[in-house]
Structure formats: structure tokens, C-alpha cells
Design a protein around this nucleic acid. Structure first.
Lengths: 121, 121
DNA sequence: TAATATCGACTACGGCTGTAATCGTCAACC
DNA sequence: GGTTGACGATTACAGCCGTAGTCGATATTA
């Protein structure tokens, strides 16, 4: 398990994390804004199924697709990789970075503060 | 500007962010633990120079390489991309994620707390 | 029952990435 | 001055990624 998921594949996963199971058609419909053709979406679905990120159920002559991995797990893995690579595994510099660049709103800061308070218990 | 830097390329950049300018030989020597051959390191250096991430100065018949982009800028870009993609642009969920998985040490939390206090001013 | 639409599977293909060998050239040494 | 070594440049090549076309089989419809 735990194969990497590419960026295009991630968008497909997002659709299915949001609602599943879906047919290839339905997934493609929800990805209309990407401009991808149906074959493209089908290729991505196949690749995801092949690497175990999606589970398929036969429904007559077609498949219903649904996630086989939790979004949280994949997100955690990606986060960890980034934090390791960019900040030596320490998350504070990441936050400091975002802050320095004005990428943090007051709401973000409040949210982080509440989270920290909770973590300290 | 702002071409993407791949993971192998990132390791080369790390060397030069740490000390520069260096020759290809010197860079390769500092990447001994990767097991990469000298040609491999040279390829990575060329690609980085071609995309403007490294600046070169001629030194006789060879080049001296040094970063043409700040580590902080690249790191910020990557962080931003990740946070956008995984957490809808909000950093708190990222931290929450790391926390939930026990990826945050007490020291990390203290560091974050200090940072938040500072940000609130 | 014959034509058509729809599926998934397979194939394609250019670009990027990781990894490296080879080539032409110039400098240094014998 | 010829040979050897060190450079960068060029070429290679398999695997992954984004994007998509084609094919064979089946279901639907006329």
C-alpha cells in the first residue's frame, strides 16, 4: 500500500472522497471544469484502482469506484514528506514560513491557537 | 522564474544552499551518501542551471555553481502548493493532522506556541 | 435482428525524472 | 609534443504522468 498519488489523480480522489461510489461517467461529470475527456478520467481511475487507492465493485457491465484509502492518511503522508524535506521534520518553521509571507489570516492564527491549547493538555 | 524543482534536484540545491559556490566535483563529493555517479550530479546541475535555479560562473574550464533562488522562496512555494491542495489553503488542518498522528513532539508544540504568541502581536 | 451506444482494457505518446554513458575539447604532465 | 585526465555538452533510456484514441464486447434500441 501507500503508493504515491499524482496531482491529477488527487483530483479524481477528491471527487470520490466527497461522494462515492460513482461510475466513471459520474466522476467525469464532476470533473467537467478540468476539461478532461472521458478517456482521460477512465485512465486515471484505472491507475488508481491498479495501485489500490480505489476499490471497484461490478455493477452490471461497469464499475462503481470508491476510495480504498482515507483522505486523512494520504494527506498525512504527503504532509510528512514535505515537512521532512523542507523543514527537517519540524512543522513550526513551516508555519513560520506561511506567516512571514502573510499567508496566514487572523482566523488561521486563531484556529492554530485553539489547536495548540488543546494539544497542550 | 519559479520552475518546479524535483526531489533529486532539491538535494543538489540543499548542498549549494549550505555552501557555495562549488564545482560539480565538490557538489558530487557532498552527495556521496546518495550513491549518485558524477555524471548524474552533473546532469542535475545542468538542469537546474537551465531552469534558472542555479547561477554559473566560469572558472577556467569549469563552472562554479551557486543558487540563483532563495531556499525560503522555493520552500514557501512548495508549502503553499501543498496546503492549497490538501487543506484548502488553511494551515491549521495541516498542523492538526500532524498532531493527530503524534508527529508533533512537545518541543514542536512549544515552538508553535511561541510562534503564535508572536504572530498575535 | 441489426445498428448503435457504452464499458473497460489496451495502446499511444510526448514531457519530466532519475540515472548514467559517451563525446569532443582543452589543460597538464611526461 | 603526444598522452592522459578532467570538463561540460550531448545522448540515452526506462518509468511515471498527463492526456487521449482505439478496440472488442456487450447492452440497448429500433
Amino acid at each position: 500500500m501507500s503508493e504515491r498519488i499524482s496531482e491529477a489523480e488527487w483530483q479524481v480522489m477528491e471527487v470520490l472522497w466527497h461522494a462515492s461510489p460513482l461510475t466513471a461517467q459520474e466522476v467525469a461529470a464532476r470533473l467537467a471544469e478540468t476539461g478532461w475527456s472521458l478517456p482521460t478520467v477512465k485512465t486515471l481511475l484505472s491507475r488508481l484502482a491498479a495501485k489500490g487507492a480505489l476499490a471497484t465493485t461490478e455493477d452490471g457491465r461497469r464499475y462503481l469506484y470508491e476510495p480504498a484509502v482515507a483522505r486523512a492518511d494520504v494527506a498525512a503522508g504527503e504532509s510528512r514528506r514535505l515537512v521532512d524535506r523542507l523543514f527537517g521534520g519540524r512543522p513550526a518553521p513551516l508555519v513560520a514560513h506561511l506567516a512571514e509571507r502573510g499567508e496566514l489570516s487572523a482566523a488561521d492564527i486563531a484556529e492554530l491557537e485553539a489547536l495548540i491549547r488543546e494539544l497542550k493538555q
